[in-house]
Design a protein around this nucleic acid. Structure first.
Length: 191
DNA sequence: GAGTAGATCGGCT
DNA sequence: GCCGATCTACTCG
């Protein structure tokens, strides 16, 4: 219930969508274990015109191919030799936009998040950061290209939740993107 | 508490 | 062969 529909993901404005995802419930259901976190930080990667995007200049490789598919699927890749980063592919087919989910706050399934992260108690490091949130939710590289309409990974509305203040800043870790490194395409939700 | 080195490997030039 | 959409532990003080 409340699962975001395909129409949502197929919208063209990836900057707008990055802000819309804030406050939503990112949910996974693997091996009978439900884990849910509220999305509190995102970054927009705007396809061909964005030097920070893997699909900059419409570069098509085996890795970037999923971004060219129609919105509503995952783009998951391996970074710095040890981290799995989860993105939402958006826009129509052939437009390689994606949104990196950078942080969540745990809502359900805390004991499984702790177990996957090998931690005893909650603190901010549990799922605050793109690598740690993937680990807490059990997201792995084999889930790349998976539909967000299925029953393993999806995003749902939270009718109870009232959105707070959103601020925008430059994106993290993309100094190589030259002039595009300064674009204010990172969005943070303050509670 | 702040700053930084080291880990570690796939993707692409 | 280089370096990355990062995290953690360890240093120093």
């Amino acid at each position: 219930m409340g699962k975001l529909p395909l129409d949502f993901y197929r919208q063209e404005d990836v900057i707008f969508l990055s802000q819309q995802l804030l406050g939503k419930r990112l949910t996974t259901f693997f091996d009978g274990h439900l884990t849910v976190g509220r999305i509190v930080e995102t970054e927009a990667y705007k396809g061909p015109e964005d030097r920070a995007c893997h699909a900059y200049n419409n570069r098509r490789t085996e890795r970037t191919e999923v971004m060219f598919r129609a919105g509503g699927i995952s783009y998951i890749y391996f970074c710095y030799g040890m981290h799995t980063l989860f993105n939402v592919v958006t826009g129509p087919q052939e437009i390689p936009h994606a949104i990196l989910i950078r942080a969540i706050e745990p809502l359900e399934g805390m004991e499984w998040m702790l177990k996957r992260r090998n931690k005893k108690f909650f603190d901010k490091s549990l799922c605050y950061g793109p690598g740690t949130l993937s680990q807490a939710l059990g997201i792995q590289r084999c889930h790349n290209g998976e539909s967000l309409m299925g029953n393993r990974i999806w995003i749902e509305e939270d009718e109870q939740f009232t959105i707070g203040t959103i601020t925008s800043t430059p994106r993290i870790g993309i100094a190589y993107a030259q002039e595009d490194a300064l674009l204010p395409w990172r969005f943070v939700l303050h509670s």
